[in-house]
Simulated scan of single mutants.
Amino acid sequence: MKIAVTYENGQVFQHFGHTEQFKLYEVEDGRVVSSQVVDTNGSGHGALAGFLREYGVDALICGGIGGGARNALAQVGIQLYPGASGGADAQVEALLAGRLSYDPDTVCAHHDHGEGHDCGHHHDHDCGQGSCGSN
C-alpha cells in the first residue's frame, strides 16, 4: 500500500491544489517501510490526481481540498482522508493505527455517482463552523 500526504516543512500542507510536494509512504504489514518526498513540478489541482496515480498511491491524507479534486481522486481509485493537520509522519502512523483525526464531511462518502452530483449532505455537521466553503 502507498500513502501520500500533502507536504510542507514536515507538516500536512493545507491546500491540496497548491501543494508543491507530497511525502509518499510505502506500507507493508501495517507499518511504514520507506518514504520519500516528491516534487509536483508545478502540477495544478487538475493534474495532481493523475500525478498520484502514476506513483501508485492508494490513499491521500491532506488538509483542504475542493470538490473537483475529490472527484478526480475518486475516479482514479485513491482513498481520501481530508481535513487532517499536524506532522505528516504522525498522521500516517495515526491512519495505520486507526486513529487518524480527519474530517470525512469534506468529501462524499459514496463514489458511485456521475458528474454534476452535488454532495451537499452533511451528517452531524454545522456548515457554519466547518470546512464547507462558507466563510
Rank of each mutant, 00 (worst) to 15 (best):
A4D: 04
V5S: 10
E8F: 13
G10W: 06
G10S: 04
F13S: 04
F13N: 09
F13L: 07
Q14D: 12
H15D: 04
H15V: 10
F16S: 01
T19M: 01
Q21I: 00
Y25Q: 04
V27F: 01
D29I: 00
D29C: 01
G30Q: 08
V32D: 04
V33N: 07
Q36G: 09
Q36Y: 05
Q36E: 15
V37R: 07
V37K: 04
V37E: 07
D39S: 14
N41E: 10
G42F: 02
S43V: 08
G44C: 03
G46S: 15
G46E: 15
L48I: 07
L48N: 05
A49R: 00
A49G: 03
F51Y: 12
D58P: 05
A59N: 07
A59R: 10
L60N: 01
I61Q: 03
I61D: 01
I65D: 04
I65K: 02
G67Q: 14
G68L: 11
G68D: 08
A69V: 02
A69C: 03
N71A: 12
A72P: 05
A72S: 15
A74S: 13
Q75E: 14
Q75F: 06
Q75L: 11
G77A: 07
L80H: 00
A84V: 06
A84F: 03
S85D: 12
G87V: 00
A88K: 06
V92F: 02
V92M: 08
E93K: 14
E93G: 09
L96Q: 13
G98L: 15
R99N: 14
L100P: 11
S101N: 15
S101F: 04
Y102P: 04
Y102C: 14
Y102V: 07
D103H: 10
P104S: 12
P104A: 09
V107A: 15
H110S: 14
H110R: 10
H110G: 09
H111D: 15
H111M: 13
H113P: 05
H117C: 13
D118R: 03
H122P: 00
D124P: 00
H125Y: 14
H125S: 05
H125D: 09
D126E: 15
G128L: 03
G133P: 06
G133V: 04
S134R: 11
N135F: 08
N135Y: 12
